[in-house]
Design a protein around this nucleic acid. Structure first.
Lengths: 212, 212
DNA sequence: GCGAGAAGTATACCCAGTGCAGTTATCGCC
DNA sequence: GGCGATAACTGCACTGGGTATACTTCTCGC
C-alpha cells in the first residue's frame, strides 16, 4: 500500500507536513508547560511558521489540540450506517464500543500510554478545552441523530442520539479517572467492559429498574 | 413579605442594583445589535461603570447573558432532594417538568413572550453562548448526580443524571424551534407535554422498543 | 466623625483572532 | 525550460476580551 502522500502534489504534501508540524509543536509545548502558559506565538515560532499561517490551519488555539477529535466526531454515525441488516442500532454501537475497548482506543479513555494520559490530563485540567470538547460531542449528537433517522420517529432518534453520546462520554471519563488514579489499562479493562454493558442495558431497558 | 433589599445594608443594595444595571444594559444591547457586535466597553458605558468594574461582577462577556441559567443549574438536583418519600426520582423530575410546562417557564422553551423569544434567538445565533450553555448544563449534571446518590449505584446515577439533563435540553430545543417557527405556546403545549411524557417513558423503560 | 476595608476607577498591559497588502512558491500549460 | 495564474505565506497594524496595579471614593461599625 502506498503512503498516502505519494499521489499528492508537492504543494499538498507540504501543507500536510506543515499542519502536522504545527500540531506537534503545539501539543509538545502544551504538555510541557500547560495550555494556558503557552501563547500561539510560541507555538508558531516552534513550528517555524508565522502566527498568521498557524491561524490559516487551525481556526482557534483550542483546535490545535482538539482537531484530533474532529476525526472521530461522526464515528457513531458511521457505525450505525454500516451495521448489518436487521441489527438494532444500539447493538451495533455497543459492539463497536466493546471492540474499541479491546483495542485500548484512546477515545474510550482506556489507554495507559503515557502520551495519551498526558493528553487526557491536558483536557481535564484546561477548562477552555473541556468546553470546546463539549461542542465537538454536540456535533456528534447531530450526525448520530441523522444516521438513526429511519430507525424510529424523529424525537425518539434525537433523544437516543443524545443519550448514547452522553453515556459514552461518562464511560470514557470514568476510564480516564481510573487510569489517572494509577490503574493500568489491563487492570481496568474488565471493569470498563462491565460498565459499558451496564450502560447499554440501561439504554435498552430503561432506568426504572435501577433507580429508586 | 419584605422586599429582599430591605434588610440589606446600603452597600449590598448598591451592589445588587449595579449588577442588575450591567446585566440589563448588556441584554438590551445584545438583543438590539447582536452579541458579537457589541463590545463589553459599550456595555460598561451604557451601565455607567468602568470596564474593570463590569468584570468584577461578571467574569466573562458570556456570563453577562448566561448568569440567568446559573440560578437554575441545580434545579433538577433540588427537585430530586425535595421529592416525597418513596417517589422514584424520575417521577419527581417528570412531574416537575410538566409543572414547568404548564407555567410556560422560559427554561422549557415553551414561552412565546417576545423578550424570552429574543433571548432564545440570541442563544441559538451565537456560538460562544451555546458553548458556554453546555458548560452550565454539565455542572447541572454533576449536581443532579450528587442528588441521585443513594438511589442507585454510582455509575447508574451518573448515567441517569447525564441522560436526564440531555433529554431535557433536547425537549427545550424542540419547543424553542416550534415557537420560533411561528407557533404560540398554547399551540405547542399539548405537543410539548406528549414529547415530555414520551421522553420520560424512554428514560424509564428504555429505547429498545422504539429503536430498530 | 473616624479608621478600616470594600467598591470603583484609570491606565497600561497581554494575548487571541482578523484584515490587508505584499512576497514567495507551486502548478498547469505552452 | 519558461511563464502567467494562483495558492501559500508573511509582516504589520488593529480590535476586543480579560488582567495587574496603584489610586481614589465610598460605606460600615464603633
Amino acid at each position: 500500500m502506498l503512503s498516502s502522500d505519494e499521489q499528492l502534489g508537492l504543494r499538498e504534501r507540504k501543507k500536510l507536513r506543515t499542519r502536522q508540524a504545527i500540531s506537534d509543536a503545539a501539543v509538545t509545548l502544551f504538555l510541557a508547560a500547560g495550555f494556558d502558559h503557552v501563547s500561539v506565538a510560541e507555538v508558531a515560532e516552534a513550528a517555524e511558521v508565522s502566527r498568521r499561517t498557524l491561524f490559516a490551519y487551525f481556526p482557534t488555539k483550542e483546535d490545535l489540540v482538539l482537531h484530533r477529535f474532529a476525526d472521530h466526531e461522526d464515528e457513531p454515525a458511521r457505525v450505525v450506517r454500516a451495521r448489518p441488516d436487521g441489527q438494532p442500532p444500539l447493538d451495533a454501537l455497543h459492539e463497536h464500543l466493546l471492540d474499541r475497548l479491546a483495542h485500548r482506543d484512546a477515545n474510550t479513555g482506556l489507554s495507559d500510554d503515557p502520551e495519551v494520559m498526558a493528553f487526557h490530563r491536558l483536557l481535564t485540567d484546561t477548562p477552555s478545552l473541556g468546553a470546546r470538547l463539549l461542542e465537538y460531542l454536540d456535533r456528534g449528537v447531530r450526525t448520530l441523530a441523522d444516521a438513526l433517522a429511519g430507525s424510529g420517529d424523529d424525537l425518539t432518534t434525537r433523544l437516543a442520539a443524545v443519550q448514547v453520546i452522553s453515556v459514552q462520554r461518562v464511560l470514557a471519563e470514568d476510564n480516564v479517572r481510573a487510569i489517572t488514579g494509577g490503574a493500568t489499562a489491563d487492570d481496568r479493562y474488565p471493569v470498563a467492559v462491565a460498565a459499558a454493558d451496564h450502560a447499554y442495558d440501561l439504554l435498552r431497558a430503561g432506568l426504572a429498574e435501577h433507580l429508586r
